[in-house]
Design a protein around this nucleic acid. Structure first.
Lengths: 196, 196
DNA sequence: GTCCTGCATTGACCTAGGTTAAGATCGTTC
DNA sequence: GAACGATCTTAACCTAGGTCAATGCAGGAC
C-alpha cells in the first residue's frame, strides 16, 4: 500500500513509536478524489478525519441566501474533518470538497478513540492536533474582530503563501469574509499605493 | 478545602472515576478574584486552566488602536485558558479578567499532562473539552462570516441568555464584532419592528 | 478556429455599521 | 445632596465594503 506521504509525515513530525504508526496506517484507508468531488455534504454524519497526502480540500457552509463561506483550506500534510459532526455525532452543516485531484487518507472516528486508548503517544499526538486547530480558529476570530479586510488579506498571504496561487481568488475572499469584488478592490488599492 | 462546586461538576458531567476526581481536586488550587482583577495579561505565559466555580471571566485582546475585542466569556461551570499560550508555551496576547467577584479553580498545565498520562478517563474528559471548544469557535466563525449583526445578536441571546443581564452591553457588542452604538441601533430597530 | 463557462476586474450606486459628539440615566463617593 | 464616572442612547455624518451590471480574459470542448 502506497501510504508513503502519510508515513513520512507521521515519522518526522510526531513523537510516535513505530508500532503506533504501523497501527495507524493499518487502520486507515486511502482514496483518490477528483477535483470538485465532495467528501462530505450537509445532513451527513462526518465519519472520518481526512489527512491530505496530496492535493487540497476546503470546508465551507452555505447560508440561507445560497452564499458559500469558506471555513478552512487543507493542503498537503493537513488534517481536515468536521469535528462538530464526527465527534458529537451530529449531522454536519458543512461541505468538504476536493479543490484538486487529491490523495486522502481516511481515519475513522472509532479508530481514533481506540488508538488513543491503546497508545499514549497517539493521545498526545491527537491532543496536539486539537490544540493547533484551536489556535488557528482563535487567531482567525481575533482577526475577524480586529482587522479590516486588507489586514486580513495580508495575514492570509503570509500564513498561506502557497494557497494564493492554488485557490481561486473568490474563495480566498470568502475565507476572508468579503466578496470577490471587495477583494479585487482591496488588491487594486494596495497596488495603487505602490506605483505611487 | 471548599471545592464543592468543582467536585459537583466533575461528578455529574464527566465519566471520571472517584480516584481521578480526587487526584484532580488535590492538584488544583483555588483562588478568589475580585471584580475587575486580571488573571492574565499580554506578554505573560498562561500557566493555568481556569475553572469558574462562581463568577464570570472574559478573555479579550487589545488592537493597535487600543480597542478591546472580546473572544470569550466564561460563566459558572466553564473552563477558560489561553491555549495558544498554555499549551505552546508562547507569550499570550490576551487578557483574562474577572467580570464579577469569582471563585476560580486553577489547574496547572503540567498537571493536566500528568493526569492525562495516568488516568484514561481524564484524557477523554480533556478531549471532550477541546472538541467543545472547537465547536464553539467554528460556529462563531461561521456566524461572523455569514450573519449580519442582528442575527449574531439573536444567536448570542439564545445561546447565552444569562450573560445578557450579567455583562454590560458594550462588551456584548465587542463580542459580536460591532460597536456599542451599533448594537444600540440594532436593538432599536428590532424593538421598532414589534410596536409596529 | 468558434463557442462556451468560470474567473477577475471595473464602475456606479447603495447600505450596514463606524465615528463623533451630545444628552440621559444610573449608581457611587464624598 | 452634589459631583462623578460609567453605561446606554440618539442623531448627523461618513466609509468600508456590498450589490449589480458590464467587460475582458482565459482555457477547454467541439
Amino acid at each position: 500500500m502506497n501510504n508513503l506521504p502519510f508515513r513520512a509525515f507521521l515519522t518526522s513530525n510526531m513523537d510516535l513509536e513505530k508500532a503506533e504508526i504501523k497501527k495507524l496506517l493499518e487502520t486507515c484507508g486511502q482514496q483518490e478524489f477528483a477535483k470538485g468531488q465532495v467528501l462530505l455534504s450537509p445532513g451527513q454524519k462526518c465519519q472520518h478525519t481526512f489527512y491530505v497526502g496530496k492535493g487540497l480540500l476546503r470546508q465551507y457552509s452555505l447560508d440561507n441566501k445560497g452564499k458559500e463561506h469558506v471555513l478552512q483550506f487543507a493542503p498537503e500534510e493537513w488534517f481536515m474533518t468536521d469535528r462538530e459532526s464526527s465527534y458529537f455525532g451530529q449531522e454536519s452543516i458543512y461541505y468538504i470538497e476536493a479543490l484538486e485531484d487529491s490523495l486522502i487518507f481516511l481515519i475513522e472516528e472509532q479508530h481514533i478513540i481506540q488508538l488513543m486508548d491503546n497508545f499514549p503517544g497517539f493521545a498526545e499526538f491527537n491532543n496536539k492536533l486539537l490544540h493547533n486547530h484551536i489556535r488557528h480558529l482563535q487567531q482567525r476570530i481575533n482577526s475577524l474582530l480586529s482587522d479590516p479586510a486588507e489586514q486580513r488579506y495580508l495575514k492570509f498571504i503570509s500564513t498561506y503563501p502557497d494557497l494564493l496561487v492554488r485557490v481561486p481568488q473568490w474563495m480566498i475572499a470568502s475565507y476572508l469574509g468579503i466578496t470577490p469584488e471587495g477583494l479585487s478592490r482591496v488588491r487594486r488599492e494596495m497596488a495603487s499605493r505602490y506605483d505611487h
